[in-house]
Nucleic acid binder design. Sequence first.
RNA 1: CGGGGUGUAGCGCAGUUGGCUAGCGCGCCACGUUCGGGACGUGGAGGCCGGAAGUUCGAGUCUUCUCACCCCGACCA
Length: 490
Amino acid sequence: MAKDFVKRSENYSEWYNELVSRADLAENSAVRGCMVIKPYGYAIWEKMQRALDDMFKATGHQNAYFPLFIPKSFLSREAEHVEGFAKECAVVTHHRLMNNPDGSGVVVDPAARLEEELIVRPTSETIIWSTYKNWIKSYRDLPVLCNQWANVVRWEMRTRMFLRTAEFLWQEGHTAHATAEEAVEETKKMLEVYAEFAEKWMAVPVLKGVKSPNERFAGALDTYCIEAMMQDGKALQAGTSHFLGQNFAKAFDVQFLNKNNQLEYVWATSWGVSTRLMGALIMTHSDDNGLVLPPKLAPIQVAIVPICKNEEQMAELDTKINPVVDALRANGISVKYDNRPEYKPGWKFNEYEFKGVPVRLAVGPRDLENGTCEVCRRDTLEKTTVPIEGIVAYVAQSLEDIQQNLFKKAADFRAANTRKVDTWDDFKTEIEKGGFLLCHWDGTAETEERIKEETKATIRCIPLDSDDEPGTCIYSGKPSKGRVVFARSY
RNA sequence: CGGGGUGUAGCGCAGUUGGCUAGCGCGCCACGUUCGGGACGUGGAGGCCGGAAGUUCGAGUCUUCUCACCCCGACCA
């Protein structure tokens, strides 16, 4: 049991903050709104990166890198785009400091003012499309399928660890295509990649859908998204994939000659997921005993705790356990054998439990006699004593079971908190309970806006796999083509 | 930018109507006993009381100014 750890039911956001800091994932930095991602948290991010990067490569993408700074004039080339980001940009105005004449440290040298200010990228469409102009002349140059792993800055008012920080890490894919159809296909393909990653790796069930015009990315024709449900019933946008049409090609004059020797503007997509996924991961699985990690993303999959009274016993345990460590590692399982004498077993149990290590093995004198070891699963906290002989297979199976079980638990939770609502009165009471509400909507921005004002709920997405029949809008009573997903969100 | 709040040891806090040597818990260091669910004892280290100015014999405490951070609203992956 975690000591002095607030329960989810008591104060969900405090639980989240405490968890992030006590599990050693991240901490606040000296810079407002910016966090330090600690080694354990970063190790999880690296595992996510690795899996995603492999998937991007497998779908034909290459990594590249574009500058952190964007000339101010670039940002304003696409009207909607600048409109969407202008209010949250960090701006570089000078390039030199000087000693303060009064002797108190350094000040900005007024003589070093930049001719044109530079924006710290909030996203890279503009700098990338200004580059693509040089890369693309002919249909033979297409498609361009690039991704970059980068940091971006959005000067947010209210920040929260991983969920919304002023600087965050992400990947952004930027592709260029000869036809609209191909670009749309790319947009959807990457949404599928994100959904697969979320479900297979993170064990987070997601809803695939398209955003209403209101919630669309600034400069996109269509924004596809995956939406996850957190344990407090709120929605979290976990990834987006945008069909940008020819907006950026026109803004940066990127044209190509097609097979008929005619000039055409290039079609674009962009897609991204960020360190926000860490927030999704934490809030989907973790419990009142701390972090719970799906085995596929756990930096340590198995922690082994020896139990002994003295050095001789420890030496004996070492000789028994080291082969087990080797055997597990030979099977691709990441193991931490924690034989530090400074910490007691009970302390270690709590430590690895709080950090979400999926499987813990404990081996003590009792086990030495019986040729067994104790296996404890983090998801269920069940303990079983098993023969040490078949331990590798047993652990491998447990890791798989945990991965499945976490997904199933999350999927069941989502199912239990998703419901159809048909009247406005019901809507107002149901939204207070949290979760996803499937409702008819008349398709207008006005209705969406009203509902948001009155209930703080927004349309999370229009589900892609909706087979719902037409109905009438929950708010206006006007005709609706199908149900959309309403929820309060992060 | 509005409304509310907090700055005292690494972290969490106490500190009375101004009063003499600024405390407590956790953590940290040393030694010993412990070790199957966060051990215990003894000893120890650690402070510009956010910053500046003022009132006073005397300021962590009162006044003014300032800075930073947190919470609630408008913005968002």
